[in-house]
């Protein structure tokens, strides 16, 4: 098995799985019906993408595990998502801020992945990039609408940006696995996406009348599995409950 390829696919699939699950937590309780539907639809796109990424990861691993096995039967330390996506929803503003911070990265990442030397990755990226282009349009517009909204909505969006800021850096931190795969042309070096990300987000924060905090301290440990935040375990107890309580249960 190509271990770096397997790890890279877990990183892609776990990001979409965990943020997809987080977003789905709004289903039925969002502030207005339109937002409820929009969030549920985005969660669906992300879980659909997860099926493709983790399905391919399972193929590459070649040990007979399925995408469902990878999603439902791994423990916290086996997950390879960045810390940003496992952060709790908070209020609606914090959810939308987290979404924009991730969507903007996700879009840049997928745009590069459509050119991957690994055909199966390029095919998934070509499908997903269309959906994510739509996601970022929406989360960007909503960040601006709320940031440049009322005093209260601005205050909440600023609090969300300040809170989530230290989780941005991890998305661009490259390790040996990234570099091996980037050298082979399979994935982009995440660090190479940073300049475009900063340029795009700078405009949005200005339009949203938000001030990025000073400093570039970044939490790490999610994508390597070294140290997830306490929140991931709580998320998994809910997401994996059925398969844990009734192993092998099927619809």
């Amino acid at each position: 098995m190509n271990n770096a390829l397997f790890e890279s696919l877990l990183r892609l699939g776990d990001n979409t799985l965990v943020i997809g699950h987080r977003v789905s937590e709004w289903c039925g309780v969002a502030p207005v019906l339109e937002e409820d539907i929009a969030l549920a639809n985005m969660a669906l796109d992300l879980i659909g993408q997860t099926q493709m990424w983790l399905g391919l990861a399972a193929d590459v691993e070649g040990e007979g595990r399925s995408a469902d096995d990878l999603a439902m039967l791994r423990d916290v330390w086996d997950f390879r998502n960045v810390l940003l996506v496992e952060q709790p929803n908070g209020d609606f503003g914090q959810t939308i801020m987290r979404q924009y911070l991730f969507d903007q990265f996700h879009l840049l990442q997928l745009q590069h992945l459509t050119q991957s030397t690994e055909d199966r990755i390029a095919a998934i990226a070509q499908k997903a990039v269309k959906e994510v282009t739509y996601h970022v349009d929406r989360s960007r517009d909503t960040v601006v609408a709320l940031g440049d909204g009322t005093e209260e909505s601005n205050r909440r969006m600023q609090a969300a940006l300040t809170k989530l800021w230290p989780y941005i850096g991890e998305m661009f931190a490259a390790d040996a696995i990234d570099l091996e795969m980037a050298t082979a042309g399979v994935i982009p070096d995440p660090a190479s996406l940073r300049a475009d990300y900063d340029a795009a987000t700078r405009v949005v924060f200005a339009d949203a009348v938000l001030t990025p905090p000073a400093g570039d301290f970044a939490h790490g440990g999610g994508k390597t599995g070294f140290r997830h935040s306490e929140h991931l375990g709580h998320l998994l107890t809910q997401m994996q409950w059925l398969q844990r309580a009734y192993p092998g249960a099927r619809w």
Binding site: E34, I37, A38
Partner: peptide
Amino acid sequence: ISQFGSTPCKAHWRCDDCLEPFDYFK
């Protein structure tokens, strides 16, 4: 009205003349 409608493939719009809401196939 909303970028997302009743299914992932649709958005939600409204006619400002007859006032009917409708789905738009994205």
